[in-house]
């Protein structure tokens, strides 16, 4: 790597013909002053039902107290045809460092597209989910700084939802909130989707209380939950707002909606 003749005097000793040359180099170790990450704010969430999956994310992009733009989608169709991803059956949502999110999206998208060309059949969500984990883990020591959520329908047509940490640990879940307002949204989802801390009325007192069993929710009800989660998060988190993008995956394909949120 180093040039054979660098033009520099030899290191660690006097390079000139003067005898009283000071040998101490003025500086010590140089510090790296560049931090390659930033947080672009925003929040995402996903809920899976009996025969559908819903992914949602706000469209605000921030840096510090600045709003970069009011419309920067965090939801991406994966593995469809052409630049608009027509006929896609998998959706990826990413929140965190937006540049890493875009890079991750592009990698997963090309992989799923290549799979279809090479095998002559679309990639299953299960396979895609594991592949995404591998992509993230491959950068274990310089991670993609994102919380990803992957949604689709499994081989039985049931709603499938996978959530990830930045280094690729993943899990299939009923619901997951990620990003800036995840700590505000996730407890709400625990209560309203998995019925945590809910009991059957009049089933007894103390230990005799019967917990309310979690059952798959209807699509309309889940859409209402998503909207409520985001309108509430907007009130309490400054990095969330401007617009709500939703993608609803069913056996008929992906339905995309946009509704505006408060812009303050």
């Amino acid at each position: 790597m180093a040039a054979i003749f660098s033009g520099a005097p030899p290191q660690g000793g006097p390079g000139y013909s003067f005898t009283q040359t000071p040998t101490a180099v003025p500086s010590g170790e140089r510090q790296h002053g560049f931090y390659p990450y930033t947080d672009n704010g925003g929040s995402t969430l996903g809920i899976s039902g009996a025969d559908f999956t819903i992914l949602a994310g706000d469209t605000r992009s921030t840096s510090g107290y600045n709003i970069n733009t009011r419309y920067a989608p965090k939801l991406f169709k994966i593995g469809g045809e052409g630049p608009d991803n027509k006929g896609a059956r998998i959706v990826l949502s990413v929140v965190g460092f937006a540049a890493d999110g875009d890079a991750l999206k592009e990698r997963l998208d090309t992989i799923v597209k290549m799979y279809k060309y090479q095998h002559g059949k679309p990639m299953t969500v299960t396979a895609c989910a594991q592949r995404l984990s591998h992509i993230l883990y491959n950068k274990r020591f310089f991670p993609y700084y994102v919380h990803a959520i992957l949604g689709g329908l499994d081989e039985e047509g049931k709603g499938a939802l996978y959530s990830y940490d930045p280094v690729g640990s993943y899990e299939r879940e009923q619901c997951r909130a990620a990003g800036a307002a995840s700590s505000l949204i996730m407890p709400f989802l625990d209560n309203q989707v998995n019925f945590k801390n809910q009991y059957m009325p009049g089933s007894g007192t103390g230990h005799n209380l019967k917990t309310k069993e979690a059952t798959p929710l209807s699509r309309g009800h889940v859409e209402d939950l998503v909207r409520d989660a985001f309108t509430s998060a907007v009130e309490r988190h400054i990095e969330v707002g401007d617009g709500l993008q939703m993608m609803i995956l069913t056996k008929d394909g992906i339905q995309e909606t946009y509704t505006s949120l408060k812009k303050d």
Binding site: M1, P9, G15, Y16, F18, P22, S27, R30
Partner: peptide, 24 residues
């Protein structure tokens, strides 16, 4: 020493900080 030409004299300005050269 041609390596020293065009550089600040060490006896006047102290040892030259070479760290910006591509060395080892």
């Amino acid at each position: 020493l041609p390596q020293a030409w065009g550089r600040p004299r060490d006896d006047v300005y102290g040892a030259y900080d070479n760290s910006h050269f591509q060395t080892a």
